[in-house]
């Protein structure tokens, strides 16, 4: 089972006592503000968790995997996530008992 916005709102309700409407709105705004910053070309650094960085990619040759036809992959800006030391260390100890989907 994957973690979703509904699970996150539920936690804010049970642990922090926000009402359900506030909790849902806050979770929504949390992701929206990160998207907005990235959209404005701003890196997002969440210490302990990780950084969302932006990279500008040049055009490069690509292929339609079905037809084999060559089509250029246009220049684009992409988001990359670099996990922080703390998150890496916590995940590193995952023993693989519960298979990640």
């Amino acid at each position: 089972m994957a973690l979703t916005k509904a699970d996150m709102a539920e936690r804010l309700f049970t642990k922090l006592g926000l009402n359900k409407g506030e909790a849902k709105e806050l979770v929504e705004s949390f992701f929206e503000e990160i998207r907005t910053a990235l959209q404005h070309g701003e890196q997002v650094k969440l210490s302990g968790f990780g950084n969302f960085d932006l990279r500008d990619k040049n055009q490069r040759p690509g292929r339609n995997p079905k037809t084999g036809q060559e089509i250029p992959i246009t220049a684009r800006r992409v988001v990359t996530f670099r996990p922080g030391q703390k998150l890496k260390a916590r995940v590193d100890t995952f023993d693989g008992q519960q298979e990640p989907e």
């Binding site: 994957a2 973690l3 979703t4 936690r11 804010l12 926000l18 968790f49 995940v91 519960q98």
Partner: peptide
């Protein structure tokens, strides 16, 4: 407190091998 709780919950999920799926934002996995 809410922002810290959200990031903690996301870190916990990943540490337990659980995926995170946020439509329109993205997904985290191991």
């Amino acid at each position: 407190d809410a922002v810290k709780a959200l990031l903690e919950q996301m870190s916990e999920a990943l540490s337990a091998g659980e995926r995170i799926e946020i439509r329109g934002f993205g997904s985290f996995s191991l």
